[in-house]
């Protein structure tokens, strides 16, 4: 278990290449217990790959990911499932299961982990839906019947249903109008606070980052090039951060045309 000064998540020297393309080149990042850290960076800089390494969806080529002081790289089978059972994930596109009604989507993790029977999981799922502002009638709908914003809310309800210690948010506001994006941001802040969870989000939406982050880290070229409190981001003194937060085409960041 982690000591009093040990971060909830500690990433050191994380490397990952796909073929000849090196995506992560030594990512170092700490996330404290109960802290909300947002990783910003351009498309294709490895933000999603970093999160997928933490969830065991992508096997890193090198480096270490300590969760509560325990190494999670290389875990398989039941050991990986035990670690993942303490985590929730909101995917960029929602990733709701098309073949299941909304409430079963939300209850899925509870039933799969053996925490609840299918019948007992339904009230918990409906409670999670209520937390994100959706009524019980939504629980009976299929995901295809929902708007993009509602799908994001359901995905958020699924991510928090098992009351995880750590929640990952992958581009939570992508594809939403500004008002719905703000609603989702508020829900994220509220849910993370209520659960007392540690949150790691990745986004390139600066409005979202400013709203949900305690601390922001910028990933560029496979490394964290700046990290600091959200209040200091406008005076970071880092050229990469300045160019990114102001959305300027000119600067040290050259956008890759190919992935």
């Amino acid at each position: 278990m982690s000591g009093p000064d040990e971060p909830k998540i500690r990433i050191r020297g994380l490397h990952k290449a796909f073929g000849a393309k090196s995506v992560l080149r030594g990512v170092d990042l700490d996330v404290g217990a109960g802290e909300s850290v947002v990783v910003i960076g351009g498309s294709g800089t490895g933000k999603s790959v970093t999160v997928k390494c933490m969830l065991g969806l992508v096997e890193p080529d090198g480096g270490s990911i300590l969760i509560d002081g325990a190494e999670s790289v290389g875990l398989r089978g039941a050991a990986r499932e035990a670690v993942n059972a303490r985590m929730g994930m909101l995917f960029q596109g929602g990733a709701l299961f098309d073949s299941l009604p909304v409430w079963e989507n939300v209850a899925f993790g509870l039933v799969a982990a053996g925490q609840k029977t299918r019948g007992a999981a339904k009230p918990v799922a409906l409670d999670s839906l209520a937390r994100v502002g959706l009524g019980p009638e939504v629980g009976e709908l299929m995901p295809a019947e929902l708007s993009g914003g509602m799908q994001k809310r359901v995905a958020l309800a699924r991510a928090i249903a098992a009351r995880p210690d750590i929640i990952f948010f992958d581009e939570p506001t992508t594809g939403l109008d500004p008002i719905m994006a703000d609603v989702i941001n508020d829900l994220i802040v509220q849910c993370v606070r209520e659960l007392g969870a540690t949150a790691l989000s990745i986004t390139h939406d600066m409005a979202s980052a400013r709203k949900i982050a305690d601390r922001i880290a910028m990933l560029h070229d496979g490394r964290i090039v700046w990290s600091g409190p959200v209040s200091e981001i406008d005076e970071s003194g880092n050229d990469f951060v300045d160019q990114f937060i102001h959305g300027r085409a000119s600067g040290p960041i050259r956008m890759a045309v190919r992935r």
């Binding site: 969830l55 994930m89 990733a95 709701l96 299961f97 993790g109 982990a113």
Partner: peptide
């Protein structure tokens, strides 16, 4: 295939399901 490209298969893994 659709579940793969829409990350539903990844979502299963994160929900303690192989």
């Amino acid at each position: 295939g659709t579940m793969r490209v829409t990350e539903q298969i990844d979502a299963l893994s994160t929900l303690s399901t192989d």
